[in-house]
Design a protein around this nucleic acid. Structure first.
Lengths: 332, 332
DNA sequence: TTGTACGCGTTATCAA
DNA sequence: TTGATAACGCGTACAA
């Protein structure tokens, strides 16, 4: 059992109240006793119990973070940002995975509520809307990062998918490409739709008519496989450049090109989205759209702190930026 | 403020004791009141406070996990294993980063102690030995995963670096290579040393004399840069195959080979260690030694559960296995 | 079958 | 300047 203030009180021959006050340098305690008790506490190895403090203060200085899976580096990078800001503010972070399973996601929320976390941050939530009712029950701030549901819920921090996709297509246009394909993802409805919007906006702004045969959404197990299939479709449609839903999709595209002996970027330009670490290391290194993942996390946690401070906050939408590497080139 | 059992008691016209008992199906409460109170609790949206329960039970059902950084997918995969077992056992996991900074690592331990976590799991700790004294203070199980300090501390789960390195070199020997180089890491003293031991053991078993010029340890900022430099050194030493401390080092080696127009694996075989996700996607896909990261995490958490159950446990050393891809080939 | 009283570790109020 | 007491939410020994 850890040392308590009562143990110290007994050892010092004072009341536990005095110990409590001395330890936090309360003005009304004589300097001598304060010094004596602080020394004693140090010596006895006293560490205050956050549990007891929480019970009294009704604040745990704790937040719960839900991600889909630790196997995906994307949400994990968001956690990094969250944790950094949290730690600096004296908050600790519970991390739990939902495995993209709504039931599990609800169970985690329930657990966090039992633990009386002060707030919850959810990355890529599948059930944004469900929180509406849940929120009435638990009455704490919930911040959604890159929420995957349509609609206006609670508080959110997200990347501007439309702007990012636009940036990608504009880059390809600038290289002289006119037949630009898009390989979508069927299982991320919201961000996929918004990236298509950006794709179309860029083309329209350039006066290029939309060709539906250039927008494909292969149904495959993994992102990589979707990329492989996507290349097949888009080469048939005579694309000279393709923009992929994300980097893994683009990597699948690169793999398929290698298999078919299609030189990237000489014969086909390939772009991704996300800028995950792998993008730097594939051959050729992938031109992509960078998502500020760590900053998403930092802003989400900062928003939590503001909310807990009673400040009013505004939903945030962050811009992406272009990272030019070697998988794109001038139209031959 | 969340609903408490007192609120329910008032609403039901009974004492809070009765509510407490009814909610956990205590035998001595009449079925009717039990049902009535459970319904009421449900209706009022009651969730018990783990904080209050913890204060009473002196158990938080919580563990603290310390990793170096969320930017590295390696420890994050360990977290995945830990969290899976923890969640199944009703434990929640605090995650915190040490950024490889011993002072920060101590601060995190202190915070976890304040929060009265039931146990702590540390990945790649830099200060294993320090825990000896700290442990006397906090009196909870501490499990180290892939500890980076020599010596016997506390409890540990680790991969067998010697066996893994041996496996790698045996693979290269089998391909006919005789001049096999090793690119080490200066900042992971323990595992590096053990991988050298495995490297030497394999060579000796094959009756090949150790050539010191084939073992290099470039001092560079990143693993990747160390790999680039390592290739330079080892080509000068006429190596036909190189075994790298880890996959990132090996990827650096691949990059340098490409720059110098050295064909892998035709002119040089390259091996890594770890089997991180990236290894699959580089060109050529990397032959490497797989570390069971998730299983390390699961075993660490299982060990924690056993320790909390008062069972005695044994330190665990896990075998690695070979993953053959396309960066290694027969000696030309 | 149900209720009263106490304690877990801490802080705040009030009194001395 | 210090101490006794109550309270946070819950579980349990004991009493009714």
């Amino acid at each position: 059992m850890p040392i308590t203030i009562k143990d110290i009180a007994k050892a010092a021959g004072v009341s536990h109240t005095t110990v409590s006050r001395a330890l936090k340098g309360h003005a009304a305690i004589s300097p001598q006793t304060t010094a004596r008790i602080q020394a004693l506490a140090e010596e006895m190895g006293y560490t205050p119990s956050a549990v007891a403090q929480s019970l009294l203060s009704q604040r745990t200085q704790t937040i719960g973070m839900i991600i889909t899976t630790t196997a995906d580096p994307f949400p994990v990078n968001i956690v990094g940002g969250v944790e950094e800001v949290a730690q600096a503010a004296g908050y600790s972070v519970f991390l739990s995975s939902s495995h993209n399973n709504p039931r599990q996601e609800m169970a985690v929320v329930e657990t966090f509520h039992r633990r009386r976390v002060d707030a919850i941050i959810v990355s890529s939530s599948r059930l944004g809307s469900v929180y509406r009712s849940e929120l009435d029950q638990i009455q704490i701030p919930i911040v959604l990062v890159n929420n995957q549901e349509e609609g206006e819920y609670l508080h959110s921090v997200a990347v501007d998918d439309v702007q990012g996709a636009r940036l990608a297509v504009e880059h390809l246009l600038q290289l002289g490409h006119r037949r630009i394909g898009y390989v979508g993802a069927v299982n991320r409805p919201k961000s996929n739709r918004r990236r298509i919007v950006g794709y179309q906006a860029a083309l329209e702004a350039a006066g290029i008519p939309i060709d539906p045969s250039l927008v494909v959404a292969p149904v495959e197990e993994t992102d990589v496989d979707q990329g492989k299939k996507g290349v097949d479709y888009l080469l048939d449609a005579n694309a000279t450049a393709i923009f992929c839903y994300n980097d893994l999709t683009a990597i699948g595209a690169l793999m398929e090109c290698r298999r078919r002996n299609i030189a990237v970027p000489q014969q086909l330009s390939v772009m991704g989205f996300d800028d995950i670490e792998i993008a730097t290391y594939v051959t050729p290194p992938l031109t992509t759209i960078h998502q500020p993942r760590s900053r998403l996390g930092k802003l989400a946690m900062q928003m939590v702190l503001d909310l807990l401070d009673g400040k009013s906050v505004q939903d945030k939408v962050l811009n992406c930026n272009l990272v030019t590497r070697q998988s794109t080139a001038d139209l031959a």
